[in-house]
Design a protein around this nucleic acid. Sequence first.
DNA 1: ACTTGACCTCAACCAAAGTTGAGGCCAGAG
DNA 2: CTCTGGCCTCAACTTTGGTTGAGGTCAAGT
Lengths: 165, 165
Amino acid sequence: MPRARTTFHELTVGQVAERSGVAISALHFYERKGLIRSTRTTSNQRRYSRDTLRRVAFIRTSQNVGIPLAAIKQALDQLPSERTPTREDWTRLSKGWRVILDARIAQLHALRDTLDDCIGCGCLSLRACHLRNPRDVLGRDGAGARRLPPPSERQEAQSPNGSWE
Amino acid sequence: MPRARTTFHELTVGQVAERSGVAISALHFYERKGLIRSTRTTSNQRRYSRDTLRRVAFIRTSQNVGIPLAAIKQALDQLPSERTPTREDWTRLSKGWRVILDARIAQLHALRDTLDDCIGCGCLSLRACHLRNPRDVLGRDGAGARRLPPPSERQEAQSPNGSWE
DNA sequence: ACTTGACCTCAACCAAAGTTGAGGCCAGAG
DNA sequence: CTCTGGCCTCAACTTTGGTTGAGGTCAAGT
């Protein structure tokens, strides 16, 4: 059985897939979308540096919170491209993410704490109810649905730092 | 300008759309999927009872938390179909939802609190890290990706009560 | 009577996030 | 040397959650 040879710091796509729990096809996809990068061997096989595992972990956990790949990409684009990211690089990135996570958490708390009330209270003016519009994030941009993704994507997609479109 | 006539307890699709902030096309879609129901006038127009506003609010807020429509439908299917749901019906439903919200919140907390650590700690064994697998929900079902939706859908899609899908 | 706005259906299209399959290359074990 | 497992590309397909548009009905206001 032919084993792919890799140097200590290089991983094959199969290894990344196994260690990250992500399908190879998804890794190819992420690469096409620019979320991860690889070098190629002389025979055109991908080789990943180990920090790719972190990138992938970051991608999956962020998706878990409902953040679309395009936004995740923008965050990852802040990492240095021509050197291996340092702990500080990652920490800076994750600080930004904390803001988003905090916002999500707050939103969920509001939701949870209001659900019973709102259901029970008889208020039919759901437009005003902060269950529907938990943090008044929306509220501008009059009635209309010109191709907005469902709320999860839409929610803080342009939120705290305003940097992601 | 022809104004649609409605009795006190009936709403047109346009009214529901406006009051709920959801596009008419989305309401049609939800109806096709069985998440909401309508009666028809003699001229085949939809009329919604007022509790539809709650159903729609419930749908949108649940989507916001990343729950797929199919699962939301299963929850809504627990409401009585041949009478207007009472406060108690809704409260029972929302109690079930709390469990899910609580799980999500816990997951987010774990994520948030671990992110810096995990990034900084130098642990490369990301498979073991609970950032990647926050509540050990996954972990069975060996390597493989046979058409799984992204983690958000997958996460507690069969979680606390085990009832959905 | 006629027009206008709100509604109807149905089919086609869209985007995101991948998966699947066909066809082909390459390297190491037997 | 050949076979096999792992990798490659590219195109097509999938699901979810809708939107858009064409073509048609109906009822109220003028």
